[in-house]
Design a protein around this nucleic acid. Sequence first.
RNA 1: GCUGCAGUAGCUCAGUGGUAGAGCGCGUCCUUGGUAAGGACGAGGUCGGGAGUUCAAUCCUCCCCUGCAGCACCA
Length: 650
Amino acid sequence: MSHASQISLTFPDGARRDYTAGVTAAEVAASIAPGLAKRAISATVNGAHYDLQWPITADASIAIHTMADDTQALELIRHDLAHIMARAVQEIWPEVKVTIGPVRDQGWFYDFDRAEPFTPEDLGAIEARMKQIINARDPVRTEVWDRARALAYYEERGEPFKIELINRIPEGEDLRMYWHGAWQDLCRGPHLQHTGQVPADAFKLTHVAGAYWLGDATRPMLQRIYGLAFKNREDLKAHLTMLEEAAKRDHRKLGREMDLFHLQDEAPGMVFWHPNGWQIWRTLEDYMRGRLRTAGYKEIRTPQVVDRILWEKSGHWEAYRENMFIVEVDEEGAKEKRINALKPMNCPCHVQVFNQGLKSYRDLPLRLAEFGSCHRYESSGSMHGLMRVRGFTQDDAHIFCTEDQIGSECESFIRLLASVYKHLGFDGFEIKFSTRPDVRIGSDETWDKVEGMLEAAVKAAGVPYEVDPGEGAFYGPKLDFKLTDAIGRKWQCGTFQVDPNLPTRLGAEYVAEDGAKHRPYMLHRAILGSFERFIGILIENYAGKLPFWLAPRQVVVASIVSDADPFVHEIVGALRKAGVRAEADVRNEKINYKVREHSLGKVPVLLAIGMKEVEDRSVSVRRLGDARTETMSFDAALAEFGFAALPPSD
RNA sequence: GCUGCAGUAGCUCAGUGGUAGAGCGCGUCCUUGGUAAGGACGAGGUCGGGAGUUCAAUCCUCCCCUGCAGCACCA
């Protein structure tokens, strides 16, 4: 076909070299240095990641990767492992149908269609077979096939999922077929040169779980096998250790150990708070109440059970009924049952408060806050400890304002949120700015205006944000705030949404300077999101070791000998008077036992009191996580812990 | 909601077609011990709920509930 024309490749250091068109990255690497040729694994050409064998036909920028490039190396290793696993599965069970197997965080998965479930023993067998395939150092080859050939091939093999995939690939696009030894799979690549390049001791099949074909709940349920893979054994071990650490932080486990809360069958998704857990809640609520008061919010309280008439007006009955707890009541003398619903959100009730009496523009912005208890019928499979529940309380507020107040309200909200997160131990958070979705209400003009205001406000707050196009609510754009916890997980907690819709539906209006009635904007906003979930996040973030001011039991004063008991009680009394949550431990146990028990109970400070302390009116201080002890005077202890018990302030 | 797995003492878990065990915890007693488990004795279970098979079910079968891992959902 084409005669040998020259192309020019630009390297990361800016150097250019000329090659014959159709040159492969492997050949390019060889032309630079034999050592590089040997170590090369793939190449990035014009920003896209390719195999070494892929021909380069035009001028391009190129970077040759070796195993030293973590991002590319891990992608290739994990991607090849997906194929190797699928091959191993089909070698063991030829009747199993293959589907897709992408790379994901820390590893990969592959979805299979098989009548019998995979067992843990099966995973072991698959893993063993995978190691054989790796050790065989089978070459990885690729070919471009035309559609008809690929369809015929999979038709013959009886692979309906692959056929569907091919039919979903746009006409005219190349179909690439990859061989790992004699086994082949439709794949866009890239891959390593041979299976032996995959480290045989740095992967592990972890578990199997159901997953819908193409993520669609109406399609067949497949079996997804998950694997973890790294460049070497040490990295794998480190990751497994990290997973163990994360499991130790599980708030469900810590919640039991620290006696914070429980859940039981009779009330799925509803939390029974124990004294220790409820103490955390109240500390957090009091703190938030203080922050909201200074920020100019008014706290209100609205009903739990509200007639369906209001939900019909607000649109919830139509759009959200599936998720609502319905309460039917036989009213005296009534022909029909009265239908109520437990409120799933607070906004309609807040509009009712706004609507009482005539509001003037002088009342705006009106910030109505409620620690609003809501109930949502979440699907059974989605509940998870405190993180996803059916009964929860939001730190909710709705700001009724004019259009030109949106910007400044947003800005001060972001400042408040950042300060609260910082106080609660989360330094980092990210902002997602979600813009107009395809399906929406309101004019493009309004959207332009409101989006512009929101964006300007985020910019003014001086915090980085990402635009998430089309992800806004149907009624308006929003900001979502995701904080990062101590082990790098992200949690979406805060939100700020502009809503010109609900005030219209529920008839909110105010009298403006012109004497006419106008529609206010309504801003939905939350900082913590839900108390339940946020407390779960706090527990996991701190691995149960809450900072002093949040800890349910802050100080335990433990006697070493019972002759010290009167002084112990005196200390506890004085600490409580100073605002410290203190408890006495005068049980007939040795001090070793008490130290162990309260350390496991995550009490920040233990004061041990023996006769020495009684004699010079001092305390022996032992702080959580520190085996050293320190002696200080009774008065010094009172001053220190009384101060430490105060909530943080700027 | 879907797929798979699970539910035995307060907790963690073992176990068996003939109505059950350990450790921790709990109670009582002894012990007053100086910074991560002192000792002895004791109490405690309708083996998640219902139905079926069986002479007999905690164990086998079916249904339900709840939980766990994912998937889907999260206006």
